[in-house]
Write a protein that binds this DNA or RNA. Sequence first.
DNA 1: AAACCTAATTAACGGTGTTAAGTATATTCG
DNA 2: CGAATATACTTAACACCGTTAATTAGGTTT
Lengths: 212, 212
Amino acid sequence: MNKETRTQCTRNASRQRREQQKEELRQAILDAAAELLLAHGYEGFSLRQVAEQIGYTPTTIYLYFEDKADLLFAVVDSAYADFSRRLQAAYDSADDPLQRIRVLGRAYIDFGLANPVVYQLIFVQRTDFLLTWRQGEQQPRASALLILLRAVEEAQQTGVVRPGDVQSLGDALWAMVHGLVSLAIGMPMFDAARSRAASETALDLMIDALRA
Amino acid sequence: MNKETRTQCTRNASRQRREQQKEELRQAILDAAAELLLAHGYEGFSLRQVAEQIGYTPTTIYLYFEDKADLLFAVVDSAYADFSRRLQAAYDSADDPLQRIRVLGRAYIDFGLANPVVYQLIFVQRTDFLLTWRQGEQQPRASALLILLRAVEEAQQTGVVRPGDVQSLGDALWAMVHGLVSLAIGMPMFDAARSRAASETALDLMIDALRA
DNA sequence: AAACCTAATTAACGGTGTTAAGTATATTCG
DNA sequence: CGAATATACTTAACACCGTTAATTAGGTTT
């Protein structure tokens, strides 16, 4: 091993180490941001608090994220992937087309109730996130909801669901579950029991109504 | 007419004039606030802009309203009264219990689509306003929604609506219309045509599902 | 050892809601 | 009529916020 290759190696190693440290700080920012977002909600979330939490100046965050929106987008990224995965799992879990719609709706509602802050952020306060996408992603995040449409369409084709404009039927289904989650999350008078009862009733009504 | 009564009169007159001026400025603040709220939305609404609009310092507003929330509450007060009135009118406009529910839902949706900023403020961003009430009001604003419950309950008693927990059925109905308005208002991909189509479909589904 | 690059900082700008202290005007009283 | 007082409004300030430009400190490369 000659001199040149050795210096080459150490150079690579040091660069790698630096990049890893950078990645670690980026992750630390993400973790702190996620924690503070959950703790204080969207309205009470501030970059300065994130900076203080990790022991850096606020401006440092701008070396790792474009701006506040970019950081928030990254924070809810994993949560959104989880949401998408759960919908897919629900879709796969049922064979009966009508039951599949019900399970999908239930999965949607369950996610919203289990992750109120993230749900509110994505589907209420920053709906622009749904149509935004990063480099490396081909589809906007809203495309995860296409699975609802597909379930309705397939159920319609097998004849178990009433005919009609698929988009409108899908929108109605989306409105139903979104409305349920929004009320349950946002309205102080909706406690867990009332939310659960309303969800059950609403899903029953929806499935009954869709039936051909 | 002796001296004392005359001074008494002028005193009262001047006080009345002062109070009227005060009332006028209060109204000017309200008007400016309403205009700016509609123009910039809840997030972009600021007391300093209101102050500049009426040609006063921001602190002056605090002589007429407790704080920002108090001003906003007052701003949407008339809009909420209008909302309440429209629901009542819809209720009164139909005789058939099932049709009454449909008309109520339509009135709810129409109000939301016609007043997106106000709807968003009351039912999304500041849901605490629904449970807050001023002196002189016996009921919180959310009580206007009890008319939905009543319509469901009466339709149920006449046998045209399926049996079941009234509150849950009412909540499901509320969730449906609230979800529709929320999506139509908040989601960029919902244009007027799509919102209208989804509303029609959803109302059809809802009425069908409620039917005994 | 000097030059360079990079990560982080400091300082600042313009904005927000809100409070305390001060001022000027109009009203009341002796 | 002049002095005291009450009222309406302003000024100044505090503590935040997101964001940008200029600057410093430290490690890497030459």
